[in-house]
Design a protein around this nucleic acid. Structure first.
Lengths: 183, 183
DNA sequence: GTCTATAATTCGATAGAC
DNA sequence: GTCTATCGAATTATAGAC
């Protein structure tokens, strides 16, 4: 079959995201990704140059937070948790970062950037204590990433069984407190 | 040099723990472990048979919780967090499980066992709601593992900078609530 | 128990015909 | 753009001399 370059790239990229999300960086081989995509392994190299650049492309999606400054302070935490749950289940980007950030330095760096850099301004804007914002953002990240780790990666049964809204109700209050919002 | 078999095993095992904890399963090679231990790569195979069995030996340490049933309910959560922090920083066992459980099925299974099986009885004994114990144990696991992920693996700066007691103060209340203990 | 040599795979990456 | 063939390096694992 004959495809355009951009078509092939898109097909390979989709397969790469699934593999990276499922197996991590090292175990997701070019050959396996190519087989999933139904293309020749050489094509993967031709389109992306190297495994590193393929990986960079696979987790280069924007991951912007919604505008939380307009929402009532009592609903900021639940909105935040709900947003991350939705993101986690709608595409594999966060799965990839969590699964590979443990052994891949580039993914870990990106994880730090995504979570801290985006949460620090939110934490700073919500409380009267801008100096404590980095710590607050770190604690929020810890709570959300820990939930994702247990629910999506380790697949701890009672965590998998929870509905999305049950997760929001369960960890929302802790996130609320970490953000420095009084009840 | 000439050593007894058990001596060599112990030396290799110590090096293997550090490598698995630092690099994860795939990137921790037999050769690197042998080099760290100052022995021949062939010796590692001779003593442990395969990389899989070496890995199994490296994370086969008991990880028992302290007896929390005697402590006042107001201090259970902080004692729990303090215990895990101490365990995390005293040896590499938990580091290994967290770093490898993301891509290695055996490590993930062991992680589930360690955390859930040990926390469920605690949660069940502390509250009058034994049916909710698995979920409570899962939420506690999520909070503690998320903290460890951000502090020890992703090395998010503000989380690394916290002292051990500051971590206890920060996430203790959330753990307290997840355990079903009223304030 | 120690170590050298090597087998047997597997991987990322390249070259080149069509 | 597609594909075959293959290189070079790295890995786990084995065989056997000392």
């Amino acid at each position: 079959m004959r495809r355009s370059s951009s078509e092939t790239k898109a097909i390979v990229l989709a397969a790469a995201r699934e593999r990276f999300a499922a197996d991590g960086y090292e175990r997701a081989t070019i050959r396996a990704i190519a087989a999933d995509a139904g293309v020749d392994p050489g094509q993967v190299m031709r389109c992306f140059g190297s495994k590193d650049r393929l990986f960079a492309a696979a987790c280069a999606i924007d991951l912007n937070l919604p505008d939380l400054l307009g929402t009532p302070s009592g609903e900021v935490a639940t909105a935040l948790v709900r947003h991350f749950l939705e993101r986690w289940e709608s595409d594999e980007t966060l799965q990839i970062l969590l699964r590979t950030g443990v052994t891949n330095a580039a993914a870990a760096e990106r994880m730090r950037t995504v979570f801290v850099a985006q949460l620090v301004p939110v934490a700073a804007a919500l409380t009267g204590d801008p100096g404590g914002a980095p710590v607050r953002a770190g604690l929020v990240s810890a709570q959300i990433l820990g939930m994702a780790l247990c629910r999506y990666v380790l697949a701890i049964p009672p965590m998998v069984a929870l509905t999305r809204e049950e997760v929001v109700e369960a960890i929302g209050p802790a996130v609320h407190r970490y953000l420095g919002l009084e009840s």
